[in-house]
C-alpha cells in the first residue's frame, strides 16, 4: 500500500460567493487505499469531490490528481477515473444498453464482461429508457458506467443513499471485490458509518471545511475512547482531560470522550483523582457524534 499519492490536496479553499465551504483542506490519499470521507451535510464533501474532478474550480491551494492539476486533467488521467455522483444525471431518452454502448465508445478500454455481469446481477432492464428508472436503479447504472473502464481511481459521492438494504449490501460486496486490486484507489463520501466500517481502511473526517482526522480506521478507533470516571470525591466543574472531545461532569462521576487515549493518561487520572476508570470503545458513529459535539 505504498506509493505516491493519487490525490494530493494542500490548503484547498473554495468559496461560493461569500460562503466559505472549504477552508484549507489538506489530504493525501495513497494508491491502493479505500478511503471513506465522512462529514456532516454541508461540510463540503461534495464540493471537495467536485473540485477533485475538475467540475469546480479551486479558489486557492493546490489539488493534484495522478500528479496533474485537477482543473486541467489530461485525457489519460480521465480514462483512469470513475465517478458516481450523488444526483445522477444521465440522458433520460437513452435506453440502458444504449447508454452503456455510448459510454463505452469514449473509453479506450472497456470491460464488457463486467458490465454485462453487473447489469444481470443487479437486474437492470437493458431495454428500458433511463428516464423512468427508479433512483436505486439509476445509482446502480451509474456505478456500472463508472466501473466499466476499469478505473484506477473510483470516486463515489454518497453512493448508497438511495439504495434499500439489500441493494446496499450488494453494492458493498461489489465494492469489496473491486477493492481487492492492490493498485485501485477508492474514495467515497458517506454518512452511513456502518458501511464505512466494513469497507474502508482509512477515514478522513471533514468538519467545517477542514480535515480534522485522516488516518487508518483502526487507529481512529483505538485512539478515541470514552472514559467513565468515578472518583472518590466530587469533581470540579472545570475538570478537563487533555484531548477531550466532550466532557460531562455530574458530582463524583464524569463521562469524557477523549481523543489520543494512552495508558499513561489513564494511570495519571486514576492516581490524581483516586478514581476507577472504565474505558469504553466507541463505534465510528459514536466517534463522529462526539467529534461534532459543541
Amino acid at each position: 500500500m505504498t506509493g505516491e499519492a493519487v490525490i494530493a490536496s494542500q490548503g484547498v479553499c473554495k468559496n461560493f460567493g461569500d460562503k466559505k465551504v472549504l477552508r484549507g483542506v489538506d489530504l493525501s490519499i495513497p494508491r491502493g487505499s479505500v478511503v471513506g470521507l465522512l462529514g456532516k451535510n454541508a461540510a463540503g464533501k461534495t464540493t471537495f469531490i467536485k473540485c477533485l474532478l475538475g467540475l469546480l474550480k479551486v479558489h486557492s491551494g493546490t489539488l493534484r490528481v495522478f500528479g496533474e492539476d485537477s482543473w486541467w486533467l489530461t485525457a489519460e488521467s480521465k480514462a483512469q477515473l470513475g465517478y458516481v455522483p450523488q444526483e445522477v444525471a444521465l440522458y433520460p431518452w437513452m435506453r440502458v444498453e444504449q447508454i452503456l454502448q455510448y459510454t463505452a465508445a469514449f473509453y479506450p478500454r472497456w470491460n464488457w464482461e463486467l458490465a454485462h455481469r453487473l447489469v444481470r446481477q443487479w437486474e437492470l432492464p437493458p431495454k428500458d429508457r433511463v428516464g423512468p428508472l427508479s433512483a436505486g436503479q439509476l445509482q446502480k447504472l451509474a456505478l456500472v458506467l463508472a466501473l466499466g473502464h476499469k478505473p484506477e481511481l473510483l470516486v463515489l459521492d454518497e453512493p448508497v443513499a438511495s439504495l434499500d438494504p439489500v441493494a446496499r449490501r450488494d453494492f458493498l460486496r461489489t465494492l469489496l471485490e473491486i477493492a481487492q486490486s492492490e493498485t485501485r484507489t477508492i474514495l467515497f463520501s458517506t454518512h452511513i458509518t456502518s458501511d464505512l466500517e466494513r469497507v474502508a481502511d482509512r477515514v478522513a473526517i471533514l468538519r467545517d471545511g477542514q480535515i480534522v482526522f485522516h488516518d487508518e480506521l483502526d487507529v481512529l478507533k483505538e485512539s478515541v475512547k470514552r472514559l467513565r470516571i468515578t472518583a472518590s470525591r466530587d469533581l470540579p466543574a472545570a475538570f478537563a482531560v487533555r484531548g477531550a472531545l466532550r466532557t460531562e461532569v455530574a458530582g463524583p462521576s464524569a463521562l469524557v470522550a477523549v481523543s489520543g487515549v494512552t495508558g499513561a493518561m489513564i494511570d495519571d487520572l486514576r492516581t490524581t483523582w483516586d478514581a476507577t476508570i472504565d474505558v469504553e470503545p466507541l463505534s465510528l458513529e459514536d466517534i463522529f457524534l462526539e467529534m461534532h459535539h459543541g
Binding site: L53, G54, L55, W71, W72, L73, T74, A75, E76, K78, A79, L81, Y83, P85, A89, L90, T103, F106, Y107, P108
Partner: peptide, 9 residues
C-alpha cells in the same frame, strides 16, 4: 458528466 469523459478540457 460529459466533461469526465477522457478528453482534455
Amino acid at each position: 458528466c460529459e466533461s469526465l469523459y477522457p478528453l482534455g478540457r
